[in-house]
Amino acid sequence: MTEKHTPDDLTVGRVADLVGVSVRTLHHWDGIGLVRPSGRTWSGYRLYDAQDISRIHRVLVYRELGLALAEIGRILDDPSVDPGVHLHRQRTLLRERIHRLEKTARAVDEMIERTDMTHEKSTTGTSLTPEEQARIFGTDWDPAYQDEARERWGGSDAWKQSAARTGSWDAAQWQTIKDETDEVEAALAEALSRGVEPGSEEANALAERHRASIGRHYDCTPSMQVVLARMYTEDPRFAAHYDERGEGLAVWLRRAIEESARSQGVDPETATWQ
C-alpha cells in the first residue's frame, strides 16, 4: 500500500457507483484481502487504480458464477495463472451455467405442460384478505406471485401438500410462519457477515434450518431444496430478496444448500425435483 496516487485513481464511493456494489461490500473485500486498494490519500481514504477495478470485475464474474469469496481469492492470487487463463476459465464456467439453465427451463416447460390449472388452492391460503397479505408479507407482495407459482407447480405433489397444510391457516398462523422465516434469513445473513464457509458444519446446519422452514409447507428433500436454491441466484426477484438481507447472500445460500445436499449424498449438478 502506498500514499502515492494519480489523478485517475478513484475513491471507494466512485468505484462503488462504477461497478454496482455497495461501499460496505468494497470495505469488506478490503478487510478480507480479496480486493485491496492500491493507494490511499494523505488523509487515509482508499484509492483504487485501473488494475484494482479490473480485479473487482473479475471478482464479480466469479461471484455471479456462484463461487465463494475465499475460493475467488485463491483463484485470483494463484501466481501461476495469468489473466488470459482466468478469462478462458470464466467462459467455460459460463457455458456450463447456461447449460444448467437450459436444462432447468426444459424441466419447467414440462411441468407447465402437465399442470392442472383448474382447482388447486393458493399456497397463501384463501383465508387471507389482500390487506392481510400486504401486512404479513410486505407492501411489495404481489398476488400475481401465487398465480405464477400455480402455473409452475400446480400439478406437483408438493403444491397439493402445501394446499392441504396451509388452506386452513388464519392470519395469526401466517404471521408466525413469516416471523420464523425472518429469523432464519437473519441467521443466514449473520453467518455470511462472519465469513462462515459453505460446507462447514455451521453452514450445513443453517441450510437444514432453511429446509425445515420450507417443510412447514410441504416435505422438502435436499434435492428439492437444491432446485429451489437455483432460483435464488437465477431469478432476480429471489436474488434481490436475499441480497437485501446481506450483500451476496443469495449466492452464499445457494452454495450452502448445495454443499449441505452434497454431504447427504445428493449431487447438486444433477439434483431434480424429487
Rank of each mutant, 00 (worst) to 15 (best):
T2F: 10
T2M: 11
K4P: 01
K4C: 08
H5I: 06
D9K: 12
L18W: 12
R24Y: 01
R24D: 11
T25P: 00
I32W: 06
G33A: 06
G33V: 01
V35K: 06
R36G: 08
R36P: 01
R40N: 03
S43G: 07
G44R: 08
S54I: 04
R55P: 00
R55V: 03
H57M: 13
R58T: 12
L60H: 01
Y62G: 05
L65V: 02
A70Y: 01
R74S: 12
R74A: 15
I75G: 02
V81M: 13
D82T: 13
P83M: 11
T92Y: 04
L93C: 04
I98G: 07
L101S: 12
K103T: 12
R106S: 10
V108C: 05
E110I: 02
M111E: 15
I112A: 01
R114E: 14
T115N: 13
D116A: 13
M117E: 04
T126E: 13
S127F: 10
A134P: 03
I136A: 14
F137H: 03
G138E: 06
T139E: 15
D142G: 10
P143E: 07
A144R: 11
Q146S: 13
D147W: 01
R152S: 07
W153T: 03
G155W: 09
K160D: 09
D170Y: 02
A172N: 13
T176V: 15
E180Y: 09
T181Y: 06
T181P: 00
L188C: 04
E190Y: 07
G195W: 05
E197A: 09
L206R: 04
A207V: 04
S213E: 11
R216H: 14
H217P: 01
T221S: 15
T221F: 07
T221Q: 11
M224S: 07
V226A: 10
L228W: 09
R230P: 00
M231L: 11
Y232E: 03
Y232W: 15
Y232C: 03
T233K: 04
E234K: 02
D235T: 09
F238Q: 13
A239V: 03
A239Q: 05
H241N: 05
H241K: 09
Y242R: 00
G248P: 03
A250T: 05
W252F: 04
W252P: 00
L253N: 00
I257N: 06
W273C: 05
